[in-house]
Amino acid sequence: MTTLRKAIRRPRVLEATGWSVPTLYRKMKEHAFPQSQRLDPNGQAVVWWEDEVAAWQRGEWKATEAAV
């Protein structure tokens, strides 16, 4: 059985972290926060996986070796 993942947009991520947009992208660049995912080839729709953001909030998220 496949588990569906919920995607959340940037306003919800900013609300969850309390960060500004520049801080969010800096943390992603430093591999200190989950990477965003593009929903379309042009990158116009960008999301984060809710389960990854929740894991980060709990202090359980770690960057994968591929991302570092």
Rank of each mutant, 00 (worst) to 15 (best):
G59S: 05
A66E: 06
T3P: 06
A55R: 12
E65N: 12
W48S: 09
W48K: 01
W61Q: 05
W49Y: 13
Q35H: 12
G59R: 02
E30K: 13
Q35S: 12
G59E: 01
A63R: 12
Q57P: 04
A32F: 00
R58A: 15
E65R: 12
Q44L: 06
K6H: 13
A32S: 11
A16R: 15
G43F: 03
A63G: 10
L14I: 02
Y25T: 13
R26A: 14
R58I: 02
A63Q: 02
H31E: 11
V13T: 11
W19C: 10
E50F: 03
A32K: 15
K62N: 10
R10K: 11
M1T: 14
K27A: 15
A67C: 06
G18L: 08
L24D: 06
R38G: 05
K6E: 15
Q44H: 13
A45V: 11
P11A: 12
Q57H: 08
L4E: 10
E50S: 10
A66K: 07
A32V: 01
E50Y: 07
W49M: 09
E60T: 03
W49C: 01
M28I: 15
K6V: 14
A7D: 06
T17D: 02
K6W: 01
R9V: 02
D40K: 06
R5P: 04
L39Q: 13
K62P: 00
G43K: 08
W49G: 08
H31Y: 02
T3R: 14
E15H: 13
V21Y: 06
Q37E: 05
R58E: 14
W19Y: 15
M1L: 11
W19I: 08
P11T: 07
V46K: 03
E65C: 04
W56C: 09
A54K: 12
Y25R: 14
R12K: 12
T2M: 11
V47T: 07
T64G: 14
K27P: 04
A16H: 07
I8G: 08
P11V: 02
K62Y: 00
P11E: 05
I8P: 06
S20G: 14
P34E: 03
L39W: 02
D40L: 05
A66T: 09
R26F: 05
Q35D: 11
T17R: 04
E52V: 02
E52Y: 00
I8R: 09
A54E: 11
A45R: 12
A55E: 09
R26Y: 11
R38S: 13
A45Y: 07
A32G: 14
W56D: 09
R9F: 03
D51T: 04
R9M: 04
T17N: 08
A63E: 02
K62G: 07
F33Q: 09
K29Y: 07
W61P: 06
Q44Y: 07
P41D: 13
